[in-house]
């Protein structure tokens, strides 16, 4: 379908973008890559009066590593981050980005846009939550930084206020002596994940993150377990997340995949750490 009519604003500076957002607080949407928002507009699931296109704002085009963080500006595409040489300092992000959308959508879709969209099956919110990262929000009232856990509140729901926009996301660099893994299962590579699983392990244990099942990324810390102990732990998590049935998969299939993918990513992480 075609989108309903909207005014199109293309600010040259961030303060102009925030001014338009303040003026049209409840009726404006921020457009970055448009790979999620564009589809919603075409289907008229959203009908904003004003679209504020931030894709060319130079102030939001940075990727930089300092203070133990990779900071990614809101205009940076998933593909730009994927090709950024410093990405190897954060292996989980490097492992996950190739699974975000498709070759074609990654070249336009932004990292922060995916976080703002807050789809429970999407990969970047899961990685941000796993790494205990944060988003930086700005409005004319000022700026604030929210942790991933405080930012995403539900299915496509975030703590962002109507006059705020994401200006950057911050992914902590990997701690020394960690290893990580990512896997997902979906109808086709690049489609929405039915279940996504990420693991980050160290000498003491492993954090498992599951996307696509609960309405926000679910993170659990486990000691290193084997055999029946690991089976039991994964089974408990699979039931705790209360995944539901939908057009893509049944609740039982989701539980099975939490167990399967969970075992795989934990196994890969463990192997990388201890069997080298």
């Amino acid at each position: 379908m075609k989108p309903a009519g909207f005014d199109y604003a293309r600010p040259d500076r961030l303060d102009e973008a925030l001014a338009v957002l303040a003026e049209h607080t409840h009726t404006a949407r921020v457009l970055a890559g448009g790979q999620s928002l564009g589809a919603m507009l075409n289907m008229r699931l959203v009908t904003p009066k004003v679209l504020i296109d931030i894709s060319a704002l130079a102030e939001l085009g940075h990727i930089q590593a300092d203070d133990g963080m990779i900071e990614v500006g809101a205009a940076v595409t998933q593909d730009q981050l994927l090709r950024w040489p410093g990405l190897k300092e954060q292996p989980l992000l490097a492992q996950t980005l190739p699974w975000v959308g498709h070759y074609q959508t990654r070249q336009r879709g932004t990292v922060c846009g995916s976080l703002a969209h807050g789809d429970p099956s999407s990969e970047l919110p899961l990685v941000l939550a796993m790494l205990k990262g944060a988003v930086v929000l700005a409005s004319q009232r000022g700026s604030r930084t929210l942790t991933a856990a405080d930012f995403q509140t539900g299915t496509m729901q975030t703590a962002m206020r109507d006059d705020e926009m994401i200006v950057a996301a911050r992914f902590p660099l990997a701690a020394p002596g960690c290893s990580s893994a990512f896997r997902e299962i979906g109808p086709r590579r690049g489609d929405f994940a039915i279940v996504a699983a990420a693991a980050v392990g160290d000498q003491d244990g492993v954090s498992l993150g599951i996307g696509g099942v609960a309405d926000t990324p679910a993170i659990r810390r486990l000691p290193w377990l084997d055999g029946a102990g690991l089976d039991d732990a994964l089974n408990t998590i699979a039931w705790e997340l209360r995944g539901s049935s939908d057009g893509h998969a049944s609740a039982a299939y989701r539980r099975t995949q939490v167990r399967n993918l969970g075992r795989q990513v934990i196994g890969e992480t463990q192997h990388a750490l201890f069997n080298r």
Binding site: M1, K2, Y8, G34, Q35, G38, A39, N42, M43, D79, H102, Y103, Q104, T105, Q107, R108
Partner: peptide
Amino acid sequence: EHGVCGACTVRIDGASTRACLVY
């Protein structure tokens, strides 16, 4: 017309892009 099929793909400044998701 909502970004799923790829039939509309063009290149914008060299990058393959779904033209149904661009104004």
